[in-house]
Design a protein around this nucleic acid. Structure first.
Length: 950
DNA sequence: TAAGTCACG
DNA sequence: GACGTACGTGACTTAT
């Protein structure tokens, strides 16, 4: 923890606030910035920022004190209307011209305080408070000038300081406040300290001087004597004029001898009301901090607990602390309050409101589920909680199957083109933040209408950055129920389900408006609720660098699609059918009866009951397993049928999952296959691909590769596959700090052979293939959270032998053990683990009552930082890729991502240049956030089909 | 809708 | 010390 253990208040938002600038009376708070930071510095232990050791003790205290002040201020019956923090300017001041020695003997500030000075100003601005400073003047001069100005205009001033030099300013409407001691300093307190009222403090100070500031004063005269003299003679000028009357010879002589020095001292301590004002008083009006700026700053400083407190307050209007349960956070969601926009003036009015708000949530409705073919039905906007509209553009009356004689009456709505044209400037306006739930979908749809939505935030990804692993879904319905305690209208309830389900374009405008506008409304509410948590929970950087840029990139990839060779796939499908038929006949012959080869249950009956083969392991439900490894075992025992079943299964899988369906998946619009990537479906940060899944296209078998060959480039183009070599093991070597592995990677050795060599003490040259295979299995096992059982299973060796390997591995690479132990520890104590890029992966299973589930959680915890970091690296590369290609003048398109591989389509002419750019971006993707201690290596190749590009 | 299986990293 | 057992996905088929 880097936070100051200072007492800080709970929240801002629940404290009633006076309207600012209401009436003429200005109530100004002026904070003495230097005073604040010196007190913070001395009050706190020397804290440093965890990530880089930057000293931040003073700035932490400063922030806590400032925040506490802001909260306390608002709690006052007559809350201040104006607030500023005043700083010394580091240059020489006019006092040095008067007296060279002024403040000359002051020791330099402590070394670890120096780097914190500039941060004070940033902190102040981050809290939304004006900073005041002026070259040639001290903070005290500015404080005096503002205090005089406001006081003379009939306002009130409170100076937040305990500096005695400022006490001369105290008066009827000017007081001081020592926030550390919670003391108000008024006229009485000044008299107590100086023995004179505030207006005579300067005279006393001129006499007694100040050793700290090197104000000379009169030698031998202290505060008591000075006050006595001033009270006796009325003021300094009178005293000096009548010095000869003083009875005590020493005092008399001193005052006469040092009269000039005393007058000089008075000039040095006197604060001048005529100091120019760098900002008008009006500029100091109290304002709430910009939550984003403040969050970003606090996160950068790594002030977690303050960020939490701050975020719980003003930044999140929707979040109500437990203290105020009676008041609902926002107006309840009322779907009947939404507006259906069907004319231009109304649309324009909403656009104006969105611009004024600076933030607009939006959602697109389309006539299909997958974005590849979807046409726009309408767009909804939300400009404030509860204030949302729906703009239909593509709704139609449902035809009655052509039974009517006349065409159905057209629906009165704006056209797609005019609405898009009108919304485009808003959606692309850099000063208006757009918010969407699963922005990728909306961006894909809109990009087909020539709209590049930016800047954009995604509530789904915010939830994912915050809580990956805690929930299966980060979909809007779940988020709404989870955070707003509101169940949105179900899509199926407006479209119907099953056979009678209709396209959204056929939904009547009234229910369509309720449904669509509610989505935008909910999205905006979720945004206001979740977004402040990012900074508060230290995940802003993760979100900004690993999540936020992805929707645009993926939308583009999905829209691009990839070409597949229909003929090849059809031929394959036929070929597979024929061979499956042959295998089926053979299987029935061997079984002695027909049975369904696709039914594990029937296979079990045939193999284990009728043919009497020994059943091995059982499935979760207690049935005898017939999976591939089981069938392999039986085949190895000399049985014929299992081999036939294995062959049939392979072909069945390939045909059913790939050949037939890929052809079906070709979109009419483009003639290409468009997958859909899920950004928030895995726990580790990986993507997933579906409809169709293009991340599991076969490659491991010869038959399978024939399918991969059907993924092709357009004529005159090539596909380029670029994949990270051993990225997970490289990350393991880095996080586990394994010198041998790091060296092997640095020198470009075969990592599995090097592992085997290290473990078994055999040279790499002439190493038996089996030895390397075992090391390879162990390396993979480690990444998965190894167990003797799992390794034994994988290698088909006895469990104790596998256990011995693991033991040897840990002895040779003790860093791995340490990594595993600390990772498990972290998971168990915090409930989550993190990647080197800061991504959080929650592992709730580690807290389970079941030992089995806990063990499962342990393994997931070991794997997540490795798999997750690899995913982080890939995301960074992907986000940077489009600009890098563009800047290189290349027209190359990124098409697919398969975890550690990217697939591009380039013209033949641009292939080589593309490979160079792609390799560079991918290999440097970790930088500058993380400096890996192993090189990242990318292998890239171009060919006309995907298989040959490997 | 669950279970079993298997394609991928 | 017992507990099931490599990590992360999606899609298909059968069976309920």
């Amino acid at each position: 923890m880097t936070d100051a253990p200072l007492d800080a208040p709970a929240t801002l938002s629940d404290i009633p606030r006076e309207p600012t600038q209401d009436g003429p009376a200005v109530r100004l708070f002026l904070v003495d910035g230097s005073g604040f930071i010196f007190r913070a510095y001395h009050a706190l232990p020397p804290l440093t920022r965890k990530s880089d050791g930057l000293p931040i003790g003073a700035i932490s205290g400063f922030c806590n004190m400032l925040w506490k002040l802001m909260v306390d201020m608002k709690a006052q019956a007559e809350a201040p209307t104006h607030l500023a923090v005043v700083f010394d300017h580091s240059e020489q001041t006019f006092r040095n011209k008067l007296y060279e020695q002024y403040k000359a003997h002051r020791p330099p500030p402590p070394e670890d305080l120096i780097p914190q000075f500039p941060l004070m100003r940033r902190a102040t601005r981050a809290f939304g408070v004006p900073c005041l400073e002026l070259p040639g003047y001290e903070a005290d001069d500015l404080i005096a000038a503002y205090a005089c100005k406001v006081r003379d205009a009939g306002g009130e001033v409170t100076i937040i300081s305990s500096d005695k030099d400022l006490m001369q300013l105290v008066g009827d409407r000017v007081s001081m406040l020592d926030t550390m001691k919670n003391l108000k300093i008024g006229r009485e307190q000044v008299i107590e300290k100086f023995g004179v009222p505030p207006e005579k403090v300067v005279d006393v100070q001129a006499l007694c001087g100040d050793s700290v500031d090197n104000v000379p004063g009169a030698p031998g005269i202290g505060v008591k004597t000075a006050a006595l003299l001033i009270n006796e003679y009325g003021d300094l000028d009178t005293l000096l004029a009548r010095a000869g009357e003083i009875k005590q010879p020493k005092r008399r002589d001193t005052l006469i001898a040092f009269a000039d020095q005393i007058r000089l001292s008075r000039e040095l301590v006197r604060l001048d009301c005529d100091t120019p004002l760098p900002e008008p008083v009006d500029a100091l009006v109290v304002d709430d901090p910009n939550p984003e700026e403040l969050s970003a700053f606090l996160e950068e400083m790594e002030f977690k607990s303050l960020a939490r407190r701050v975020g719980a307050g003003g930044a999140a209007p929707a979040q109500v602390p437990a203290a105020a349960p009676a008041r609902p956070p926002q107006a309840a969601i009322d779907v009947n309050a939404y507006v259906c926009v069907r004319d231009m003036p109304t649309l324009d009015a909403w656009i104006v409101r969105a611009k004024a708000a600076g933030v607009v949530a939006f959602d697109t409705e389309t006539d299909a589920l997958s974005s590849a073919n979807a046409a726009l039905c309408g767009i909804s906007l939300a400009v404030a909680p509860g204030e949302a509209c729906y703009i239909p553009v593509g709704h139609e009356n449902e035809s009655n199957g052509g039974l009517e004689f006349e065409a159905p009456e057209a629906i009165e709505q704006l056209t797609v083109d005019e609405v898009v044209a009108r919304l485009k400037p808003l959606l692309e306006d850099p000063t208006v933040l757009k918010v969407a739930q699963n922005a990728k979908y909306d961006m894909a749809v809109l990009s087909r209408h020539g709209v590049a939505v930016a800047p954009i935030e995604d509530t789904m990804l915010i939830s994912y950055a915050l809580e990956a692993g805690l929930h299966k879904s980060h979909g809007m319905d779940e988020l709404s129920k989870r955070w707003l305690e509101h169940e949105p209208i179900k899509f199926s309830s407006v479209t119907g389900t099953g056979k009678s389900q209709k396209s959204f374009k056929h939904v009547p405008l009234e229910p369509a408006t309720c449904y669509a506008a509610e989505d935008a409304d909910v999205t905006l509410r979720l945004y206001e609720l979740l977004r402040p948590r990012l900074a508060r929970e230290g995940l802003l950087t993760v979100y900004e660098t690993l999540e936020r840029g992805m929707p645009a990139v993926l939308a583009q990839m999905e829209n691009e699609g990839i070409k597949v060779d229909t003929d090849t796939l059809r031929k394959l499908s036929n070929d597979f059918s024929v061979r499956m038929g042959e295998l089926e006949i053979e299987a029935h012959r061997l079984a002695g009866r027909p049975f369904n080869l696709g039914s594990p249950k029937q296979i079990g009956e045939v193999l284990f009951q009728e043919m009497g083969m020994a059943s091995g392991k059982i499935t979760a439900t207690g049935a005898a397993s017939t999976d591939a490894s089981m069938l392999e075992d039986l085949a190895a025992q000399g049985h014929e049928l299992p081999r036939v079943l294995l062959d049939w299964r392979q072909l069945s899988k390939l045909k059913g999952t790939y050949t037939d369906n890929l052809v079906q998946a070709i979109a009419d619009r483009t003639g290409r296959v468009h997958t859909s990537y899920a950004l928030a479906s895995t726990t580790t940060g990986r993507l997933s691909s579906s409809d169709p899944n293009l991340q599991n296209i076969p490659i491991r078998t010869e038959e399978g590769r024939r399918i991969r060959k059907a993924f092709i480039a357009e004529p005159g183009h090539v596909l380029i596959s670029a994949d990270y070599s051993q990225i997970e093991l490289r990350i393991l070597a880095h996080v586990g700090d394994i010198p041998q592995l790091k060296r092997a990677f640095a020198e470009g050795h075969d990592i599995h052979a090097a592992t085997a060599s290290e473990m078994f003490g055999v040279p790499i040259e002439g190493m038996p293939a089996e030895t390397r295979r075992r090391a390879k299995a162990i390396n993979f096992g480690i990444v998965y959270g190894i167990s003797a059982f799992g390794l034994a299973n994988q290698l088909s060796i006895p469990q104790d032998e596998a256990g011995a390997y693991i033991k040897t591995y840990f002895e040779r690479f003790p860093g791995i053990r340490a990594y595993m132990d600390r990772t498990k520890q972290m998971a168990r104590t915090q409930g989550f683990v993190t990647t080197i890029f800061g991504r959080k992966v929650h592992i709730p299973a580690v807290k389970s009552k079941s030992a089995a589930e806990r063990a499962f959680g342990d393994r997931a915890a070991i794997n997540a930082p490795i798999q997750g970091a690899a995913a982080d690296v890939m995301r960074r590369a992907m986000i940077r890729m489009p600009a890098a290609l563009r800047e290189a003048g290349l027209s190359t398109r990124m098409l697919l991502q398969v975890h550690d591989e990217l697939v591009f389509e380039a013209t033949e002419a641009e292939a080589d240049a593309t490979i160079a750019v792609v390799k560079k971006i991918m290999e440097r993707a970790a930088e500058p956030a993380v400096s890996l201690s192993v090189p990242l290596v990318v292998e890239a190749r171009a060919a006309t089909n995907w298989d040959d590009a490997h």
